[in-house]
Simulated scan of single mutants.
Amino acid sequence: MAEVGTMASDNVAEILQDRGAGAPAGPSSAAWAVLADGGWASISADAENGMELREIQEVARTTGRFAVSTPLVATLLAGRWFDLGDDVLDRGAVPLVRRDDRLVAPYFASDVAIVDGEGAVVDAAGVETLVFADLVPLGAVHAEHPALEGRSSPKHVPCSQQWRSAALTSC
Score class of each variant (00 low, 15 high):
L96T: 07
S110D: 13
D134K: 13
E144G: 14
P95R: 14
L148A: 11
A113R: 05
V136F: 03
A140E: 04
D101M: 06
R98N: 04
R102K: 09
G139C: 07
D100A: 14
L96Q: 04
G126L: 09
E144V: 13
D111C: 02
H145W: 07
K155Y: 00
P154Q: 09
E149N: 08
V115K: 09
L135V: 10
A143V: 15
P95W: 00
R151Y: 01
L130W: 08
V136K: 01
L103H: 06
G119K: 04
G150H: 03
A147I: 08
E128Y: 02
L103W: 10
P106I: 05
D123Y: 07
V115C: 08
R98P: 10
H142V: 13
A109V: 01
F108R: 06
L135E: 08
S153W: 04
F108S: 03
A140N: 07
L135I: 10
V94G: 14
G139Q: 07
V94M: 02
P106V: 09
A93H: 09
G150P: 03
K155Q: 11
P158V: 08
H142S: 14
S110W: 02
R102V: 14
G119D: 01
V115M: 04
V136T: 10
P137W: 08
R98V: 05
G150C: 04
V157L: 15
F132K: 08
G117S: 13
P146G: 05
G150D: 02
E144P: 02
R98W: 04
F132Y: 13
P158S: 10
D101F: 12
G117V: 08
V141F: 14
P154C: 05
D100S: 13
F132R: 14
A124V: 14
A120N: 13
I114E: 00
L96D: 00
V121F: 05
D123W: 09
A113K: 09
F132L: 12
Y107R: 01
V141G: 01
F132I: 01
R99W: 15
L130D: 00
S110P: 10
E128H: 10
H145C: 11
C159Y: 07
V115G: 06
H156N: 07
V97S: 08
G117Y: 02
T129G: 02
P158K: 09
V97L: 14
G126M: 06
Y107C: 03
V112R: 15
A147N: 07
E149R: 15
L138M: 15
S152T: 08
H145N: 12
L103Y: 11
R102P: 00
E144C: 10
G139A: 06
P146E: 04
V121L: 07
L148Y: 10
V122K: 05
V127I: 14
G150N: 02
S110V: 11
D101H: 13
L138K: 11
R99I: 11
V104N: 03
K155M: 06
E144K: 15
H156Y: 05
L138P: 10
R99E: 03
D100H: 13
R99H: 15
G126T: 09
E149W: 06
T129F: 01
V131L: 13
